[in-house]
């Protein structure tokens, strides 16, 4: 297996390179970019992130937990407070809402950590270089050794400033 790196200067050029590569059947792609880009995301076409599931689960857990906690605690030691019912649902809505947000937010970040960091951390990132956090876009293609020429050709046509084989 070989790894070819193409360095591009703009998000549109990078998206173009990705489209060309995928058109040619290269799906093992990694793109490094200094900022998020919808064009690149569309070109890669990997669908929406799984993070959204985490948010939904977090919100539902939070609001359920909040109401259950408040109602259970109110009846665990029932005390008359200001002549109100033990379980005052309207008053409990506020903490229900806040815990909905809290759990939703915390699980969203957990989803980001899991899908953005932990599940991707085992990949080989030897192609990364500091300029990818500056103004360079990197497009890394995993291919068989005999396909390196074809990949270099596509990347060159897509407008890469520099194309090199990272590992052979």
């Amino acid at each position: 297996m070989a790894q070819v790196l193409g360095i591009l200067r703009t998000p549109s050029a990078t998206a173009g390179a990705v489209r060309e590569l995928r058109g040619a059947g290269f799906e093992k792609l990694e793109v490094y970019s200094p900022c998020p880009s919808h064009e690149i995301e569309h070109a890669l076409d990997r669908g929406p992130s799984r993070v959204r599931i985490y948010t939904l689960v977090g919100c539902l857990t939070g609001v359920t937990l909040a109401y259950l906690m408040q109602i259970w605690m109110a009846y665990d030691w029932p005390l008359v407070i200001g002549g109100k019912p033990f379980a005052s649902i309207p008053a409990y809505t506020i903490i229900g809402f806040e815990m909905n947000i809290l759990f939703g937010g915390v699980l969203t970040v957990a989803g980001l950590l899991i899908h953005g960091f932990f599940l991707t951390s085992r990949r080989d990132h030897s192609a990364y270089q500091p300029s990818f956090s500056g103004d360079d876009f990197g497009c890394v293609v995993d291919c068989h050794d005999d396909q390196v020429g074809r990949v270099r050709e596509i990347l060159g046509e897509a407008g890469c400033a520099e194309v090199r084989v990272v590992s052979a």
């Binding site: 990949r123 990364y128 990818f132």
Partner: peptide
């Protein structure tokens, strides 16, 4: 490292947050 996977999760998280 700004990989596409990271940006995808990141953008989605920022949107949801």
């Amino acid at each position: 490292r700004g990989t596409s996977e990271q940006w995808r999760a990141h953008s989605r998280s920022v949107l949801h947050l």
